[in-house]
Amino acid sequence: MTASPSEAPPPQGLPAGVRAQILATEHWSLLATRSMTWSEVMSRITIHLTVASASLVVLALFAQASGFDTAFKVMAIGLAAAVLVMGTLTQIRVVNASVDDASTILGMNRLRAAYLDLDPGLAPYFITSPHDDQQGLMQTYLMGWPRSTLSHVAGSTSIFLTVVNAIVAGTLGALVADAAGATSLVVVVAGVLCGAGYVAGQLVIGQRSFATPRQESRFPTPGDR
């Protein structure tokens, strides 16, 4: 049976103050790693959106110069494909960062369990969880509020990028169908199918990424053992 924070024996050999200092150092290290990761991810997203915006400007200027002829269609398909590739690579980075972020949160939850081993009286002052299981992870993400995780997931960076990339994928599909001489209905259907397919694919990838078991829970939420 896995020990809970109250049952786990305190570490031996060092004074409580020294142990607290070591735990705090690790805590700040995890916080710094988390901050740097998301700073890098946000920079990647900014670059991606800047390139997407610049592509629209290029297409507008190109259309003014040459009209909506074959050259314009080729240019539009090429730029849409490039933006989609860049967006997909950015989204892969976001998914990886999200998985790493969840592991970081679990690590900090374990540190809170260690703080409670040193002083169980601290428990009423924590709004985040000292448990390193799925329930503890979500309690920390939601900052202790008993709200649904749906809004948390729907408003996430990964879903935002999925929507943006799906719009680009749908546009690319419609452009290819139009360049092939398809009717207006086929062009619309191609765009919708490409966009919906991209969303479905990314949701499956995201679900599999987060469904993969992480490290074994050492401090599970009481009642979830």
Rank of each mutant, 00 (worst) to 15 (best):
L175F: 07
Q202N: 08
V163S: 02
A190W: 02
Y141Q: 12
N165V: 05
A179R: 09
V186C: 14
S148D: 10
T149N: 13
Q202K: 13
N165G: 08
V153N: 15
T157I: 11
V164N: 01
S158L: 10
T157P: 08
H152N: 14
V186K: 15
L175W: 05
G197T: 02
A169K: 04
L193R: 11
G136M: 08
L193T: 10
V192D: 03
A166E: 04
L203H: 05
A180R: 12
S151M: 15
C194V: 02
S158W: 08
V204R: 04
G144N: 14
L142T: 06
G144S: 06
V187P: 13
L150G: 12
L203D: 05
A179V: 06
N165S: 09
C194Y: 06
D132H: 00
Y198M: 04
L172R: 04
L203T: 07
Q134Y: 10
I167Y: 14
A182C: 11
L161Y: 02
G155T: 00
I159G: 05
T183I: 10
G201R: 04
V163Q: 02
L172P: 03
V204F: 07
G170E: 00
A166F: 04
M138A: 14
V189P: 08
A190F: 05
L175D: 00
G144V: 01
L172T: 07
H131R: 14
A166N: 03
S148W: 13
